[in-house]
Each structure stands twice: as structure tokens, then as C-alpha cells.
Design a protein around this nucleic acid. Structure first.
Lengths: 181, 181
DNA sequence: TAACACATGTAAACGGTTACATGATTAA
DNA sequence: TTAATCATGTAACCGTTTACATGTGTTA
């Protein structure tokens, strides 16, 4: 029995995605480029070995299918044990505050005076970045959740999109506060 | 000449900290427990080998000193080359938006309906956490920057503390928006 | 004298990224 | 037919965390 460290959060994301519907490793990798990519990233090179380990641990199983003439696919599904593990994880407290690792913030820390000529260009660059991200997220909210009915079918997803939007909005407001033009 | 990957951001933090004043590896490790710990974390086991590599690369030098009878210390200082590297890094654009890796947000994503009984307790737990962090940061602002004069001596530090406070304030406001009691 | 803080290191394991490698299917 | 996408894997490297390991100085 392969053991998977308690702190490996990617495994739980995979459990959660497979709980939505059975998928291949390729599908999972795509999910990290799309909606879940706003919150977590993973490459296929990390996903395929982990799927193997999770299957060895009895949390998921796969069914071999063939597309077209001979393109092999592995369709992964949760086992009851995997489902339990997912439920346990979501139900556990999340008492950790992870530092944000924002490189711009890090650079700011080493600027001494408000007279430093680098500050304003840096703030402007970040404003552009976060404004773009804000526009992107607001667009996604409109396309992914056009009606209240859809919100109730993926309520958690709606919540975190709303959170991400407010975060960007506040970041933009904070940057504007210190921009002098 | 040892090469240090471009993406290693810890080296720049160390350059920045040594630019403030010469320090030992132990001092640097302490700094990550205190103020800089809000934004980045590093253990001494990562710091000591990196200091060695940075010295090999000619960015820092050390002077051996002895405290008391024979407690050996290595006091590290920036070289001109290390100072240049720090200035270059701060002056470079920071065009990357790092995902936040907030485990609570991740868990929310997998909750389907607004009727799920886990949502409210989760929101309450996070409210408590972020309220505590907000209180902590507001306390630090008052102790670290009691007057406007001090703000101007470490302006970047003041900015990022202000940013962190607004971030927590907004997080708390967002959580409260969805709390039903 | 015992506990705690100061001080420096190494080793093992883990999580994540980039690169290497191969082959099938579909659409332009 | 050729480029893009679908599909699965491995290898090497890097950054980070946890644990191991040792010894000094200070303070209660």
C-alpha cells in the first residue's frame, strides 16, 4: 500500500474533480488550465504518477477504453474509500494561513523611502495586471454563472469566483490609493 | 562559479535583508519568523546552504567572529555585485500573478449547493482566523510604525503591512457577506 | 544545573516544474 | 499532409520542509 502524505493537497483536488464526473488524466490536466487554474496548478507530469499512487492506495480505479481505432484512455472513478477521504478532507478544519508569495510585494519591502522613483512605475504595472485579471474574472462570472439557477448547482465555485473578484477589486483599490497620477 | 536559478526568490530576500545590515544565517532565519514571515517563509536548513552558494557566486562575503569564548559566527555582507543584483531584481517587472493556494477556498470549490450544512461552520472558522490575523497585523502596524517619521524610513514595509491589513479586512468582509447569523 | 536561546550545519523526503519521449486522432 | 489536439508516460532538477546532529552562551 503506497502511502500519500497528508499535506499533499493535489490528491484532494483530484478526488473532488473525479467526484464531479469520471475523467482521464488528460481531462484533469485540462481542468488545471481552465477554471481550477485560478486557484491551483498542476502539470500532467505530476498528475499521472499521482493517479497511479492513488489507485494503488485504493482511492480511485480506472477503466481502459479505446477511442477510434486504438487510442488508449484510462477513465478514472472514485472508489467508496476515495469518496470518504474527500468528504473527510472537506469537513476538516483549515486552520492554516498561507503566505501569498506575491513577488511585487516582496520587492516593495526592500524600498526604503516614498521618494524612490521606482515605486510609481511598479504600482502602475501592478494596477494594469490586476485590472486585467479583474476584467477576466468578471467575464468568467458572467459566462459561467449567467443565472441564479446555475449558481445553486455549483455554489462553492460561485463563492470562490466571487471571492477572487473581490480580492482583485480590493487589490486595485489599494494600488490606486498610492498612485499619485 | 555556482549558478543559482533565476526563479529562486529566497536569494533576493537574503540580498535585501543583508542590504539593510550585515547579519548571520541565524539572524536571517529569525527574520522569517518575524516581520518578513507574513510574506515569505524559510528555514535555516534552506538558508545556510544558500548562503554558501551565494558566497561562491560572489554576491556576499562573510567575516568570522567569535562571541564569548568560542562561539563561531559568520557575519554576511553584500558585495558590490550582490548589491547590483538586488537593485536589478527590484527594478525588473513582476508580471506574474501567483495563485493563492488557500486550502479553505479549495474546499469550498467542491461544495455543490448553498444548502450544504458545512458551509456556515467553515465560514465561521475562517472568519475567526482572519479576524485574529487582522488584529495581529493592526497591532504590528501600531508598534512598528508609531509615527509618520518611521513610515518614511521603511516605506515599502509600511506599504505591504497596509496592504496585508486591507487584504484581511476585505477577506473578513467577504466572509461576513455569506454568514447568515 | 537545567532550560532556553544562539549558532551552524547535513540528510532525506516531498511537491512541483521543465524537459524528454512516444504515439493516435482530428481538422484545416 | 501537416498542424493541432488528444493521450500517457518518465527523468532530471529545483525549492521547501522535516528531521537529524552538534556545540556554545545566558538566564533562572
Amino acid at each position: 500500500m503506497a502511502s500519500i502524505g497528508q499535506r499533499n493537497r493535489l490528491q484532494y483536488i483530484i478526488l473532488g474533480l473525479l467526484n464531479q464526473r469520471p475523467q482521464t488524466g488528460y481531462d484533469l490536466a485540462k481542468a488545471f488550465e481552465n477554471e481550477i487554474g485560478e486557484f491551483w496548478q498542476a502539470q500532467h507530469s505530476q498528475i499521472y504518477p499521482l493517479l497511479r499512487r492513488m489507485e494503488d492506495a485504493g482511492e480511485i480505479t480506472h477503466e481502459d477504453t479505446v477511442a477510434g481505432e486504438k487510442l488508449a484512455k484510462k477513465q478514472y472513478t472514485l472508489t467508496p474509500s476515495g469518496h470518504d477521504k474527500l468528504v473527510d478532507w472537506v469537513s476538516e478544519p483549515s486552520p492554516e494561513l498561507t503566505p501569498s508569495k506575491d513577488e511585487f510585494i516582496l520587492k516593495l519591502y526592500f524600498i526604503k523611502t516614498d521618494k524612490d522613483p521606482r515605486i510609481q512605475p511598479m504600482l502602475r504595472e501592478q494596477l494594469r495586471l490586476h485590472q486585467t485579471q479583474l476584467d477576466h474574472l468578471e467575464g468568467r462570472l458572467k459566462t459561467v454563472f449567467p443565472t441564479d439557477a446555475v449558481k445553486q448547482q455549483a455554489y462553492g465555485h460561485y463563492l470562490i469566483l466571487d471571492h477572487a473578484i473581490e480580492r482583485e477589486r480590493d487589490y486595485v483599490a489599494w494600488l490606486s490609493k498610492y498612485l499619485t497620477d
